[in-house]
Each structure stands twice: as C-alpha cells, then as structure tokens.
Amino acid sequence: MHKLASLLFAIGLAALLIGLAAQLPLGMTPMVVGQAILEQAPGETGSANIVTSVVLAYRGIDTLGELAILFAAATVAGLVLAPSIHAESRLRAKPRHDAGLVLRAGSDLLFPLLLSVGFYIVLHGHLTPGGGFQGGVVLAAAFFVSFLARPARQPSHVGIVLIEALAGASFIGIGLAALLGGGAFLQPVLDKGTLGQLVSAGSLPLLYLAVGLKVGAELSGLLAHLAE
C-alpha cells in the first residue's frame, strides 16, 4: 500500500513536471543576463573561457560558498569519523598490507602524471574547459592512488589541514586585497594581459589555483577519513 502510494506520487510528480516542461521555451530560452555577460566578459575579465569568468568573477561569492561547503563536509566527516576506541582496536587487529608489485609500480608511474595533468587543468582553466574543480579532483586522485597502493603509509593529516586552510584563506585574501585596494570584494585585479595567453586574465588563474588546491585537499581529506 505504501509503495503503491509513493509510486502514484512519483508518477504524478513526473506528469506534472512534463506538463510544465512542455510550456517552457526550451532550446530558445530568453538570454538576459547570459547575453550581457557574453558581450562584456572578455573585456572585463580577460578570460577566454567565459564560464570561468562567471564562476570566478561574476559569481565569485558562489564559488566561495561552494568551497566552504566542501570544507564543512570534510570537517563534519572528520568530526563523525574521529578515531574512537572501537575503531582503533579494529585497526590494530587488522594490519594493512601493501598492494602487489604491479599496483605499486603502477601508482608510482601514475602519481607524477596525475599531478602534472591536474595542475595543467587548473592553470588552463581560464583558456580551455576545466579549471580548479576538475583539476582539484585529479590532484586528489593522484594522492588517493598512491594511498590505495600503500595503505600503511597514511597521508599527513597536518599537511592536508594546512593546505586546505591556506588555499581557502588565499582565495578570500585575494578578494580582500581587491576590497582594500578600493574596489569591491573579489573584484578582478592585476593586469588582464592578452586574451588567450597563459599569463592573462589578471587574478583569475590565481583564484583557480587556490580553488584547485582547496578541492584537492578537501577530497583527499574526505577519502582518507572514509578509508580509515
């Protein structure tokens, strides 16, 4: 009876949404803010990737909120999974063995590759698809691959705490620097350079670097907590 009722509810919800979506002007939705941003963004931020302009400049405080959410999730996971007596006895009972030679050699090979791909994606965020979030995930994957191959070698918690704190603080710091310089919080500063060059778009690549390190550190911290 309960299942039938919820099934009917979901079918009703879907029918309602389909009925509503049929009225939407999809495929030719009105572009009000989007059109204005497309016209002004290259001149105002100097970034070739306009999505990056939106993420870091026009809606920069959303991105700050998002970083804070990741930070909050990692903090809560750490709070909930903080090693209890129960968990410690289990760890002692089951020593962790390293993976086999193939996996260890593979992870050694992958680690520098993943690191460089991650930083490449982060640093080219203002030119090509990608950026701090995508690159940060690749960075976290680099650390997690080596953790999977050698479970006994724990990632340094202090290191992760310091990186996530400094990366988050430098994102806000760049924003506050603009504020102290007489502008608004998170206003793009520094020289915009030539559109399409690696060194261009002012402070946006720096912000994306902070985002990348922060995301990488938060995800490594989360995965390390979950793995323990």
Partner: peptide
C-alpha cells in the same frame, strides 16, 4: 548561455560534499 553552466558546476560540487 554561460550562467547555467557555472551554476551546475557549483551544484555538482555541493552534491558531492553532501
């Protein structure tokens, strides 16, 4: 329109955290 793409990027990351 670039705005929804930026919004989705934010929403995905929020979802991962939760």
């Amino acid at each position: 329109d670039p705005v929804p793409q930026a919004l989705v990027l934010t929403a995905i990351v929020i979802g991962v955290g939760v």
